[in-house]
Design a protein around this nucleic acid. Structure first.
Length: 345
DNA sequence: TCGAAGTCAATATG
DNA sequence: CATATTGACTTCGA
């Protein structure tokens, strides 16, 4: 018994418990927290620069009825949830010490994470990080992850949406298109339904492009703007208009969304799966990496999800996984990368 | 108690 | 090496 119990509990335990799974207690490592750290750090940096920091963050909060923990959460799940709460305030001020504090109170057996985020924090704070500078981000990424950037350089250069990334993206999407508008399914409310889907893609892509294209502030502004302005309504913040669109529909469709706590996003799992697959290929990110760092799942699981995505309606706790993927897709490239890097570091 | 959903780890395959 | 498949396990709801 114990063996098994231990094995399971300790060996794998990472799962986060998502919302309902509650499998927490798995092994994991704990470094997942790093991600959150990294993120907050980044946010802060942005915030500092833009001043809209709070807003930016807000956006997360808003969009995140789900994201709260998801964004980073992988292992500690519950603990994190609380952490996340704490994080909110943190975001406003990125005092490293504070951060450390929060972390510390976590049972962190591993030390190597700390250094990692520390350095990040400092970087951000000092501003050297300047997320805006895609160059920088890229550079950093390159350092950490040689291959990711490989395509990016190309993409980055071409502002034209169709040139690179989009081109391929479109491809995939087009294939999806069949089910998109045609909608033999019930995608009426799907996150990416029909034409809108392409828009979404474009938008998100644009973000990335802008990031590098506009250079610094441009991107930041956008992001923050998107996220900020209307904090009044909990709809649409994440990154873009697209979201708002879907959100609206979803809200309506879902109806009970609930007050906030339950985001009623309906995600087109099939599409997300395709997009993720495409992105992973684009950046040469192995499933194993993405699965672990972003989804906190195993490679096999990811593979299965990507190949045989179940319809949103049939998903239960598995939705969380798709939300994470979706979330990731919505993030600006540099964030995606940093998430990958950080989580893995 | 049973079945479904989700995962994982191991293993097979390309 | 990366991805696909599979068997076993856990959790959850009837």
């Amino acid at each position: 018994m114990e063996n098994i119990g231990n094995l399971h509990g300790v060996s794998h335990g990472h799962q986060t418990s998502d919302l309902m799974n509650s499998q927490h207690a798995r092994q994991s490592s704990s470094h997942r927290n790093l991600v959150s750290h990294g993120r907050s750090a980044m946010v802060s940096s942005m915030a500092s620069i833009l001043e809209g920091a709070g807003d930016y963050r807000t956006d997360h909060s808003l969009s995140g009825p789900l994201h709260p923990a998801m964004t980073m959460s992988c292992d500690s799940g519950m603990s994190l949830s609380s952490t996340y709460t704490t994080l909110t305030p943190l975001q406003h001020l990125p005092p490293i010490s504070t951060v450390s504090d929060k972390f510390h109170h976590h049972p962190h057996p591993h030390a190597h994470h700390h250094p990692a985020h520390q350095r990040l924090s400092s970087g951000n704070v000092s501003g050297s990080f300047t997320l805006m500078r895609d160059d920088r981000s890229l550079a950093s990424m390159s350092n950490l992850y040689g291959h990711y950037p490989k395509d990016m350089s190309g993409m980055g250069q071409s502002l034209s949406p169709l040139s690179n990334g989009l081109g391929s993206l479109h491809n995939s999407q087009q294939s999806l298109g069949a089910y998109g508008p045609g909608a033999h399914l019930s995608n009426d409310k799907m996150l990416s339904s029909g034409g809108f889907e392409s828009h979404a893609a474009m938008l998100s892509r644009n973000e990335e492009h802008m990031a590098r294209g506009l250079g610094g502030h441009g991107n930041g502004l956008m992001t923050s703007l998107n996220g900020m302005h209307h904090h009044s309504h909990p709809h649409s913040q994440a990154n873009g208009a697209m979201l708002s669109v879907d959100r609206d529909r979803q809200t309506v469709g879902g109806g009970q969304g609930g007050a906030g706590s339950g985001q009623v996003e309906e995600i087109n799992t099939k599409e997300v799966a395709q997009r993720i697959t495409a992105e992973l290929k684009r950046y040469s990110i192995p499933q194993a990496i993405f699965a672990q760092r972003i989804l906190c799942r195993s490679q096999g699981t990811l593979s299965d999800l990507l190949r045989n995505p179940k319809p949103w309606s049939k998903l239960k706790s598995g939705r969380e996984t798709f939300r994470r993927m979706w979330k990731w897709l919505q993030e600006p490239e540099f964030q995606r990368m940093s998430a990958l890097r950080l989580a893995g570091e």
